[in-house]
Nucleic acid binder design. Sequence first.
DNA 1: CATCGATGTTGAG
DNA 2: TCAACCTCGATGG
Length: 340
Amino acid sequence: MPEGHSVHRIARQFSLHFVGRPVAVSSPQGRFSAGAEKLDGHTMVDALAVGKQMFLEFDHGLWLRVHLGLYGAWDFAGDITADATVASAGGRMGQTNQRGTVAELVTGHDLVVPGAAGSRGENEASLHSIGAPRRTRLRMSESERQGEDIEEFPPPPIGQVRVRLLTTDAVADLRGPTACEVQTPDEVAVSIGKLGPDPLVGDPAEGEERFVAAVRKKATPIGLLLMDQSVVSGIGNVYRAELLFRARLDPYTPGKLVPEEVVRNLWRDWVHLLSIGVETGQMMTMDGLEGEAYVAALASRDDRHWVYHREGQPCRVCGTHITMAMAAARKLYWCPNCQR
DNA sequence: CATCGATGTTGAG
DNA sequence: TCAACCTCGATGG
């Protein structure tokens, strides 16, 4: 279920609470017992998100590659940072220079009612303060849900847990992943080599060039190219539809026929939306909202997007009914009037 | 309580 | 092109 922003937030949890610590690795479910043995007891030394994939490195040079797929999730428990809207942790999670209005208005647990244009500076401080770890539960998937505080540590695994990562203070249980495997450094390089640029990995300007080149040489519709993880990493069905609307671009336009400047703006908008997603934990694609509309957008995903999941409803700009069609087995939404 | 659908990918046919 | 993967919140009766 998660698009790229979720995976970056999950990697940040590992950076904050697992990196630098020895980890007991097990497979309560049993399906990953052989892999767990190879990692058990080793210290985690890095947590890296690239697109929708996450790579955890251990001190003997082996990595754990995880892809959550459609409904995978990580359940964290213990002394963890559970603030749903906590800021990026810096380091490789940084590059948050393009914060949008929405991110600036979200701070800690509290919703700051917008309209206070002058509140920008004040919120900056709280946005960047990491909440104190506390003994609780946090499920991280596409969305994040905080559970009840735990009484005993570690809590027993619940359900089908593919892999459990346990330190003295925190535990992470992985369930329902599409991919969970131990990789050598060479294999990690191959996996990452198959992926298109991620705005939060490497130089974004370099990523822009790779993206532009990949799009402009293909006759494939831009609506499919945005979902192609070898063209650009991390975009899923929601961001795809929303990026196309924001660009007022017909999803069926062949990549090579999209003007270069439009392609560049697509990349820059992805950089922008991803940074909002990583900071807020939500796929807010109507940034800049104020007042009632902003409150509604935070409360309900149905009020959070321009076109995604809005088939038959009036376009928020022109009133035309939003269209839906299947494209490569996924639902594609767009406004036939605004996007052409 | 049963059923549906999902923000994803792979591999068979 | 489509089923399978294997989870769970939303929906309907």
